[in-house]
Structure formats: structure tokens, C-alpha cells
Amino acid sequence: MKAYFQTDQGRVRPHNEDDGGVFYNRTGQLLAIVADGMGGHQAGDVASQIAISFVRDKWEQTDGFNSSAASETWLKEILEEANTALLAHAQNNEAYAGMGTTVVAAICTDGFIAVAHIGDSRCYMLTDEGFGQITEDHSLVNELVRSGQISKEDAEHHPRKNVLLKALGTEKDIAADTQSMTWEWDNKLLLCSDGLTNKVTDEELSSFIQKEQDLESVSNDMIELANDRGGEDNISLVIVHHDTATEEGEA
């Protein structure tokens, strides 16, 4: 199994409020995660860093998961704990009051994936049946689309497009949405912040993710396109490729 994480400040923001990575537990199972922080005075980057560090440290101390149900439960519980940690940090540091972060995470094993998310950072999946988003944005415009009040096309240019309905660290009781599914050899996952999806269409993402290039080159190309189209936001992504042949040491 191959995975690659990349983050870019973009061309406008003074600093990078995104964070993420690819981490392994004691049995070598993979966790991919992306977080997009928010809050003034660099509180956003603090929020995303705290969330990623918290989840990474806990993940690296865990043993392997044999079921998707156990994986989903772990993700839910660990994000609840991370939420508590963020709230405590903000309470003890006035400069960080109101900070928060989106998060999307995926536990990837040979037989299944388990995905959790809060906010509008997304997870997409490529299978033999096609490419598509498997998470639902916790955003105002997505709720307007779901309720039939506006179209998907209207949502792209809605003045309140960036309003989130849920974010880690913003309220005491918050729960991640979780799901799990089987996946097979040559399937791929894409986890990303909205700095990518606000600039690159799903059709373009699909085209990129199906390229036979190495994951680093594909990531570079996607980020370059987002930057060429303005790069107003930070851009982060993880690509995971279920490539068991490579995992077994074959070229």
C-alpha cells in the first residue's frame, strides 16, 4: 500500500493553517488524515496541529484492527478526545478562543477502509466503478443543496460557501460521521482540504487520480492547478493507493 501527503501554503495566505499526514500503528496499518484549521492570529494552524498530533500519537500506540466496526469506533472516540483537547487549549489560551479545524481521516487495511470526518474536508474513492466523493460536507451550502433550496451549481458561487455547520474544537459535544467499506487492489483514496476542491472540479480530480504517475507527481500537479487558479487558500491532500504488489516487495 502506497500513500503520500502534501500540503502547500497557496499564493495568498500568510501562513499554512492545514496539517495532516500518513501514519502507521504498531502492526503497520495506515492512517491518512487531513485537517484545515480556522481562527484568527494563527489560531487555525494551532488547531490543526493539535488535532493531527493528538490523533497521530494515539494511532501510533494502537495495535491492529480486525474489523471495520472497531475502526469506526476508534475514530469516533479519538476525535471526541481531540475535540476536548482543543477546547481545553483554547480555554487556557485567550489568543486561541474560537479556533477550530475540519478533519477527515481514513484507516486503511488490506480488506477495508474506515473513514471519519467533521467539516468540509473530503474523502474521495476510486474503484472499478468510478470516482466519487464518499463524505458529505458539514457546510451551510451543502445543507441547502440537500434540501433542494439551491443547485450544486449555485453552491459553487454562494456567498456563504465557507460557512461550516460542524468543526472540531468549536463546541463541547460533537460527533464525527463515520463509514466503512471494502476496497480492492488498485483502488485509491483522496483526502483533501477545500483549498483543492474549491479550485479543481471532481471531474478533474478523477482524471488526475487515474494517472499512472507516482503519487508525488500527481499531488504536485493537483496543487499546481489549484495555485494557477488563484491559490487563495492552503491546499492539502493525501493519496492512498491499494497496491499490494508493491507492498509485497514487487517492482
Rank of each mutant, 00 (worst) to 15 (best):
M1K: 03
K2T: 03
F5C: 03
Q6T: 02
T7H: 05
D8N: 15
R13F: 12
H15G: 14
N16Y: 07
E17F: 03
D18L: 06
G20Q: 06
F23M: 04
F23E: 14
T27H: 11
L30V: 11
A35N: 08
M38K: 04
G39I: 02
G39M: 10
G39E: 08
Q42A: 14
D45H: 13
Q49T: 01
Q49K: 13
I50Q: 07
A51M: 09
I52F: 09
E60K: 09
Q61T: 03
Q61Y: 07
F65G: 01
A69L: 09
S71T: 01
S71M: 06
E72H: 00
E80S: 08
E81R: 01
A85L: 05
A85G: 12
A85Q: 11
L86I: 00
H89A: 05
H89L: 02
A90M: 08
N92P: 03
N93P: 05
N93T: 11
A95K: 12
A95R: 09
G98C: 03
I107G: 09
I107Y: 10
I107A: 10
C108A: 14
F112I: 00
I113K: 03
A114Q: 04
V115I: 15
V115E: 15
V115P: 13
A116M: 07
H117R: 00
H117P: 05
I118P: 14
G119Q: 06
S121D: 02
R122D: 13
R122K: 07
M125S: 04
D128Y: 06
E129K: 11
G132N: 05
Q133T: 00
S139N: 12
N142I: 00
L144H: 02
I150T: 13
S151T: 15
E153A: 15
E153L: 15
E153K: 14
H157W: 13
H158F: 14
L164K: 05
L165F: 13
A167Y: 09
A167I: 01
L168K: 02
E171C: 05
E171Y: 04
A175Q: 15
A175E: 11
A175D: 10
Q179H: 11
W183Y: 06
E184G: 02
E184F: 12
W185Q: 07
D186L: 10
L189T: 01
L191K: 06
D194Y: 15
G195C: 14
N198F: 13
N198C: 10
K199E: 15
V200Y: 13
D202E: 15
E204M: 03
E204Q: 14
L205H: 07
F208T: 00
E212F: 05
D214C: 08
L215I: 00
E216G: 08
E216K: 09
V218R: 09
V218P: 07
N220Q: 15
I223C: 10
D228P: 03
R229H: 12
N234I: 06
N234E: 14
I239K: 08
I239Q: 13
I239Y: 09
V240D: 09
D243I: 00
A245W: 04
A245L: 07
A245K: 02
E247Q: 10
E247N: 04
E248K: 13
E250V: 01
E250N: 07
A251T: 01
